[in-house]
Structure formats: C-alpha cells, structure tokens
C-alpha cells in the first residue's frame, strides 16, 4: 500500500475583506499518494493556487488540517515550516522565479546549498540532472540569458534536485509554447517515473490535464470532480 504524500481535511481559506470576506477554498478534503502525478484544474479564481500555497505552507488555512506525509503542518511555527519546505517540498512557479543573481547551476543547487550538501556532491547531482533534462552547457548562464523553457527546466531542476517528497507546480506551462510545454512535461514525467517524485500541479492547460494520472477539478474553492485517468504512462 502506498504512503500518503499529502492529506487535507475540510480546509478553508477565507480572506477577510470588506464588505464580504472572500472564501478562496471551501472545505477541501483530498489525499495524494506518494509517486502520484496529479493535476488540479479549474477556472481562474477556483482556488487552485491557494490550495498549493496551503499545502506548501506558504499560507495558513483559516480552518481544517493539512498533513505532509505524517506531519500536521497547520500548527507548525514559521521556522519549522521553512525547514519542512527545505527538506520535503519543491516548488515550480508559473513565472519560473529563478534568482536573477545566480547562474543556472547555482539556482539549481540552491536547495542543496541550504541543506549543507558538500560542493562536489552538489555539482555532481546538478550536472547529472542537467544532462537528464537537456540543460547541458547552460550551467553558467544567468536566468536573463535563458529562454522561458530553459528557465522553467532550471526551476524544475531546482525543485527536484534535493529529492523532495513532493513537487508543487503552479501553472508550470502557462508561459511556455507548446513545444517547450511538451518537453517540460516529458521531463517531469521522467522524474516522476525514475525517482518516484510526487507531483501536484495547478493548471488550466489541457496538455497537463491530459498527461496527469489524476485530475481534480476545483470550482469556487470546492472539489467539483476527482477522476483517475488510466492512460498515464508515468510511475506505476
């Protein structure tokens, strides 16, 4: 039986706002197994990004419980949450969000650096990954000198290089053309398959939905549907 990577129970996120508070997420309960490749779809404002932020500990729920593995995160201190993110969660953002002052290699190894991994080991892991995802030869380039697709690959490398239990990817293909999107999805599928990394996407890109193993649809902050797809070629 597979372990649970993520579990939420009756999670709400309400933003206090005049005249009426905004309920971004309304009682969402879900469970994601380790090694899964899950897409959360839905129209803008449906609560996809908020759910990812809640699961990643970037924002706190108004009520409800969230577990990463077997650890309840809703009551954790900010410091403990930061440590949890460092050790167990990788993020991929829509706008790549690489650190502009660092090279591609330095961006990718940043998490390892924070974890105190030795330089040789860091370089070995990053270069191996760069080779795997087609970033060879771009190691010393700053983000400004990379294409959107290349930047997003570096962002993926940064997210997965430290072997986190969970990758949270917020609209990772939104700024990419179809070829770059397809290449990126290939990379992520490959990592999912080879390393068993759990992926949880928020997306409204049909290509991502098409290639996900499970598709959760959110509407108005609630789960409208949760379907497992059978044609997925990724991790079993």
């Amino acid at each position: 039986m597979r372990k649970t990577a993520v579990r939420t129970t009756d999670v709400w996120k309400i933003y206090p706002q005049e005249p009426d508070p905004v309920e971004a997420v309304r009682g969402v309960s879900l469970q994601v197994e380790t090694g899964d490749f899950v897409a959360m779809a839905g129209p803008s404002g449906s609560g996809k990004t908020t759910m990812l932020n809640l699961i990643g500990g970037l924002t706190r729920p108004s009520r409800g419980g969230i577990w990463i593995g077997d650890r309840e995160i809703t009551e954790m201190s900010d410091k403990a949450l930061a440590q949890l993110r460092l050790e167990r969660i990788g993020f991929v953002f829509q706008s790549y969000n690489l650190l502009p002052v660092l090279t591609a290699l330095e961006n990718a190894e940043f998490t390892l650096l924070l974890r105190g991994v030795a330089k040789d080991e860091r370089r070995r892991k990053v270069l191996e990954l760069f080779h795997k995802i087609g970033l060879e030869g771009l190691e010393e380039r700053k983000p400004g000198k990379l294409s959107g697709g290349q930047q997003q690959r570096v962002a993926v490398a940064r997210a997965v290089v430290a072997d986190p239990a969970l990758i949270l990817a917020d609209e990772p293909t939104a700024n990419l053309d179809s070829t770059a999107s397809s290449d990126l999805l290939d990379v992520m599928e490959q990592l999912n398959r080879d390393q068993g990394t759990t992926f949880l996407f928020s997306t409204h890109d049909p290509r991502v939905m098409e290639r996900s193993r499970r598709l959760i649809t959110l509407v108005d902050g609630q789960i409208e549907s949760d379907k497992r797809r059978n044609h997925f070629s990724g991790s079993p």
């Binding site: 990643g56 970037l58 993110r85 993020f91 953002f93 706008s95 998490t111 924070l114």
Partner: peptide, 14 residues
C-alpha cells in the same frame, strides 16, 4: 518581493 517570496518557499526563514 517575488524573489524574497521564492527564497522563503525554498526554505529560508523570515
């Protein structure tokens, strides 16, 4: 701000 947000997401404390 976004850069600092990313740093936090990657595991830096406040």
């Amino acid at each position: 701000r976004r850069e600092f947000g990313v740093l936090r997401a990657m595991g830096l404390t406040a």
